[in-house]
Design a protein around this nucleic acid. Structure first.
Length: 246
DNA sequence: AAGAATGTTATGTA
DNA sequence: CTACATAACATTCT
């Protein structure tokens, strides 16, 4: 899907999550993202909000698209392909008001040029909650999920259970950079690989699934080989190396 | 074949 | 008001 392209967007089975059925012959003018929230902007101020949640997945058909099977929540047909969406948390047409409410509760997104790290710092530097909980809080920083929480804190040598306000300004700055680098890298690669080619001992493109992270879902730290512990933090499983992270 | 998983939101409790 | 827990919801894979 390209900006400027006429697009026929519809919900062949199921529905948009707000009940909209069919949007015909729209012109897609822009696609952008704030954290994990995606915005498909069409001409005439039609705005489609998509959030993939845990299970949402896009599938692209470059040649003839098959008949929709099962619950396709959204199908967008352009002239060079068709995009289907399954399993999103959100797939809804929203107005400017809903959009600003949504953006209002999101913290800065390190991937965006307009991101203001000071907003994240003012929350983190004041909070007695665990840094691992704050990193996952989309109102503090937008875009970090469970994998990047584990991996960014590992690279920083920071234990997820550390009190957020115990981080120094320099630590926060380095954490912000680390998260930004990891997100940029993931966006470019289209998948999450946080280990370096050196640490993996092979080209990054060949690292097997399951060996792409230092501590996330690992038993041993891929950096030092020491034991990795895991426990529940802010509703999700957290991982940390007992040696590298304090 | 139950259970876990790259997540958010609404609601309840302290 | 804040922090934290829980449930609901989406789908695929082991």
């Amino acid at each position: 899907m390209l900006a400027g392209e006429p697009v026929r967007a519809s919900s062949p089975q199921g529905r948009f999550t707000d009940g909209a059925r069919l949007l015909d012959d729209l012109v897609l003018t822009d696609i952008d993202a704030h954290g994990k929230h995606l915005f498909y902007r069409f001409a005439d101020d039609v705005l489609l909000h998509v959030h993939l949640g845990l299970f949402g997945r896009f599938m692209t058909h470059r040649s003839a698209a098959p008949e929709p099977r099962g619950a396709i929540r959204l199908r967008m047909v352009g002239h060079d392909g068709t995009v289907d969406l399954r399993g999103p948390t959100a797939c809804e047409i929203i107005d400017a008001d809903q959009e600003s409410r949504l953006l209002g509760r999101l913290g800065p997104d390190p991937l965006r040029a307009d991101a203001d790290p000071e907003q994240a710092w003012s929350r983190i530097s004041r909070s007695r909650r665990e840094i691992g909980a704050l990193l996952m809080d989309q109102s503090v920083i937008a875009g970090v999920g469970n994998v990047y929480r584990a991996e960014a804190l590992h690279v920083m040598g920071i234990h997820p259970a550390r009190e957020a306000r115990s981080l120094g300004r320099e630590e926060f700055d380095a954490l912000w950079d680390t998260v930004g680098r990891m997100l940029t890298d993931g966006e470019r690669a289209g998948r999450i690989i946080t280990v370096t080619a050196e640490d993996a001992g092979m080209p990054r493109s060949r690292i097997p699934r399951g060996e792409r992270t230092y501590v996330y879902r690992q038993a041993q730290c891929r950096s030092c080989g020491g034991p990795v512990t895991s426990w529940e933090l802010a509703g999700r499983r957290a991982w940390a190396c007992t040696g590298c992270q304090r």
